[in-house]
Design a protein around this nucleic acid. Structure first.
Lengths: 145, 145
DNA sequence: CAGTATCCAGCTAGATACTG
DNA sequence: CAGTATCTAGCTGGATACTG
């Protein structure tokens, strides 16, 4: 066992990494920080994943193709990947109806809906304060002659 | 101007990307999803960026070295980089006291404190529901024989 | 319709070494 | 003490082509 200063530092770092790996907040951040996660939650939650207002309403199930159309910028790969990971975590359900061709719908679970509600708080903060942040950023970036 | 189906898709995608670039929620997510952002906010806000409980309390200014010790896993590069970006956005202040050697303290601004409060909601959700998420994940990953 | 498979560019963050 | 500078591995996400 190492008892040098360098060894102690390395061990402290390893322990901290282990702590972060199980920290609930850290895990939540990792979960929601994917580029498309919040947008899919917003879409399925009846929120506004688009600038046009014609998609607001109540939470409702949506088909793969509908999500694909609503989130105009998403690739098939990322849409599928993100939906699968949300399903894995019990945030959405995936339902396959064996029509020809097949119909697949996605819907928020209670857990997913609860997360979506939490995100509203985040959205509110963003709409209230992000302008301030952006203004600070612009000032900071302005060369002071 | 393109009027083909492919052209329309490309334009829709470009517009959606432009929307995401100015969406307040998206910008907030980008801001807080850095690995060390929330931990620095928690530390300066008197929260718990460590498993040990001896660091809880009220928000207070902290020195660079103190933050470095508290967040045992952070590299100098990332600590400096993250602190600078938080300062740029008006979330923390950086104060240099010309002692020998110099003393530098960081402190949450009102805006930073407000963000830190919002994060508490996130933390609460994580502590309440992440176990469910993790349980779902484990079930999903279990091969069904 | 609802995917899967593969390849690749760009960014994030870590390691390491050096300094006013 | 509080940084800066450089290099690089690994991960995220995008492009493209193919399929039951």
């Amino acid at each position: 066992m190492t008892t040098t200063a360098a060894g102690k530092r390395a061990r402290a770092k390893a322990e901290y990494d282990a702590f972060l790996a199980v920290c609930p907040s850290r895990r939540l951040l990792d979960r929601i920080s994917g580029k498309w996660v919040t947008l899919i939650l917003a879409a399925l939650g009846g929120g506004s994943p688009r600038p046009d207002a014609d998609c607001a309403g109540d939470p409702r199930p949506m088909r793969y193709s509908e999500l694909s159309r609503l989130l105009a910028g998403v690739s098939q790969k990322m849409l599928t990947q993100t939906l699968r990971s949300l399903e894995r975590d019990g945030l959405v359900t995936r339902t396959v109806t064996p029509t020809v061709p097949v119909t697949v719908t996605y819907e928020l679970t209670e857990l997913g809906l609860s997360l979506h509600h939490m995100m509203r708080g985040l959205k509110t903060w963003a709409e209230t304060h992000m302008d301030d942040v952006l203004a600070h950023r612009a000032t900071y970036d302005t060369p002071t002659d």
